[in-house]
Design a protein around this nucleic acid. Sequence first.
DNA 1: TGAGATTATGACTGACCAGTCAGTCAGTGA
DNA 2: TCACTGACTGACTGGTCAGTCATAATCTCA
Lengths: 219, 219
Amino acid sequence: MTDQSVSERKRCAILDAARAVFSHKGYSEASVDDVAEHAGIAKGTLYLYFKSKERLYLDALASDLRAMSAEAKQEMERAGTLRDKLRAFLRVRLEYATSRESFLRIYLAEYGSLFVKTAISPDLIQLLRENMRYVAGVIAQAKRRGEIRTVAPYAVAAAFFDISRGLLERRLLGWKEFRAADEIEFAIQLLFSGIQNAEKGNMHAKRSSKREAHRAKIA
Amino acid sequence: MTDQSVSERKRCAILDAARAVFSHKGYSEASVDDVAEHAGIAKGTLYLYFKSKERLYLDALASDLRAMSAEAKQEMERAGTLRDKLRAFLRVRLEYATSRESFLRIYLAEYGSLFVKTAISPDLIQLLRENMRYVAGVIAQAKRRGEIRTVAPYAVAAAFFDISRGLLERRLLGWKEFRAADEIEFAIQLLFSGIQNAEKGNMHAKRSSKREAHRAKIA
DNA sequence: TGAGATTATGACTGACCAGTCAGTCAGTGA
DNA sequence: TCACTGACTGACTGGTCAGTCATAATCTCA
């Protein structure tokens, strides 16, 4: 094995340690000493591989995030229908919740901190936007094929991302017994069919709905 | 005005300053000196009103969160149909995104940090669970009335929360021009009717969907 | 084997910050 | 005018931690 791969391997080991520590304490509460100790090296050594704590953090996050996005995209391209594509997306992400739990915890926390930080990794936002655009594109295609009714692809993609993230969160919080396959099927079913009772119309509700919709408009 | 209300007013002023500062820097990056300076008082004075930085933070978060939850619940009770109740829920929350933006930023960040912290405010989790339970109850009622098709109320409530949070996030990030009323209507429409093209069935996709569903089951 | 190169170490420094407390001062009542 | 009160102040302390660097250990190859 070449020097390159030895040092690359060590780098990855440090990144793994970083993910483990950051996912337990969060960025601010975790110290570089913690990470070094967890990796079984001295702090000075860590600084041979990463120029700062922030860089270490961002690399730990970005490498897995890129891998997950790429895998989800690949699996979606392999699938035929929109249903299957979206199912594949959810499946890949939920698999990561098992195989790379630490990474996902950091990812979810970082997502939240988007709202209270001015300087967040531009890469991260960029990647999120790209993912969103890709899914929106997939939805737009399905719409053109007549597979789904006419809806705004970008808005649907956004809602789908929201639900997807919710699944990950509930999986990680363990709020209840979590059967991944069932959750995926339910989410897909909900997204495609909604909750409305198709047999019994809700005509009697038309009036008050209009009123509430108007209130929403004023807001 | 009584002494009580003077000191209560000052307390509120400090909480406002705390929300402003925490929403810009996050909990860890913000210092108590920042908050005191923003409130126009000395640090020592702040400690007359709050026993610690953490207490200040949690109070700043909890008071608004309780108010928002209560208002949403009240508006939902006022509404008649499930559609109107859910609309009201989204409307109240989006109004908060305008009137109490700082609070919402902190709330979203805190939500994210659930995944990397062991010790989070038990109050917060409790409140989130209660909200979820309430909405799930509302959905269960609608199901009993035959207003919606048979579906798992808790899972629907979870998905609805996810979408609701997504709306808030997109509103705060300003990723695009955001017309609250339109976004609300779209979300409701999506939740009730889904995206499936009711006219053209998707029978041709049945086979491969089964296969992907199976793959998801294995995961 | 040994000299030079590479990798690793951990004590140290300077900056930061939560929380304290001795002292200040505005207001009040006599 | 003066004594008293308690809200308020901000310098200070003890502790933490990111990042550095002089030194040591290990490796490589002639």
